[in-house]
């Protein structure tokens, strides 16, 4: 379903996605309730919120892994763009780094003869070239996460979602992932990043969606969100107070 005309973003650009009344249940338990939000066609949107807010469920819903029970997702071009999702725990197949990327390219329908050049490009982009022949599961946590991002990029996504990609990484590995995200952002791929690290959100976000207990409490440009959060929940979260 195409984007409703009334929901244009500031500046007149057409959003990548407008969600209206999005409701998702797992079993009988409502995890997301009546979410209305927009995603811009470029830049990095951070999905912020405490544990159990429904952030990962929202990513899985946007990826098409979960079906909403109510509401609608209106994508810019009617059909959803090619989406890719990077999971919190990086997926490393029981093969070498090159072979994992080749697998992802085969999933994307890239012809076999075109794969080596694309693999070289992805390895270069994600700083994995020296590790190309290593078994994927022998990489460090940070390297595996960059491989997971490279694997997602192999799908040539028009929208990339990342579920806490630095949750278990040390500062150096986190920095490497953040630099990679900056490179991807410059390529014009819209990003949606889940984190509950406020500092990381401050460093990276162009726009913030704040979720609490399955409801969207705030949607704002990053500068406004961090300087003058409108909702009491977001204020409490940014001040490091415990949310009920």
């Amino acid at each position: 379903m195409p984007v409703p005309e009334l929901r244009l973003l500031t500046g007149g650009e057409t959003p990548l996605l407008v969600a209206e009344g999005l409701t998702v249940r797992i079993g009988d338990h409502p995890v997301l309730e009546g979410l209305d939000f927009t995603l811009p066609p470029s830049g990095l949107t951070v999905l912020l919120g405490p544990n159990g807010a429904g952030k990962s469920v929202l990513l899985r819903t946007l990826q098409g892994l979960l079906a909403p029970v109510a509401g609608r997702l209106c994508w810019r071009d009617g059909d959803p763009p090619r989406r890719a999702l990077v999971f919190q725990r990086p997926v490393a197949l029981r093969r070498r780094v090159r072979a994992q990327l080749a697998f992802a390219l085969s999933c994307a329908g890239i012809p076999r003869r075109a794969r080596p050049a694309r693999i070289a490009e992805l390895l270069e982009l994600c700083d994995l070239a020296p590790l190309a022949r290593r078994p994927a599961r022998r990489l460090s946590g940070g390297e595996q996460q960059r491989l997971a991002i490279a694997t997602a990029l192999a799908l040539d996504p028009g929208f990339l979602m990342l579920d806490e990609p630095t949750a278990s990484l040390d500062p150096a590995a986190t920095l490497a992932v953040e630099r990679l995200l900056a490179r991807i952002r410059r390529r014009g791929i819209p990003l949606l990043l889940v984190t509950h690290d406020v500092h990381q959100a401050r460093r990276l976000a162009d726009r913030v969606l704040f979720l609490h207990r399955g409801r969207l409490r705030e949607e704002a440009p990053a500068t406004r969100f961090f300087t003058a959060p409108a909702s009491p929940q977001a204020r409490a979260y940014l001040e490091g107070r415990l949310l009920p």
Binding site: R60, Q63, F87, C107
Partner: peptide
């Protein structure tokens, strides 16, 4: 791998 394969 279930979710990963579905996402791929």
């Amino acid at each position: 791998y279930g979710d990963f394969l579905a996402a791929m």
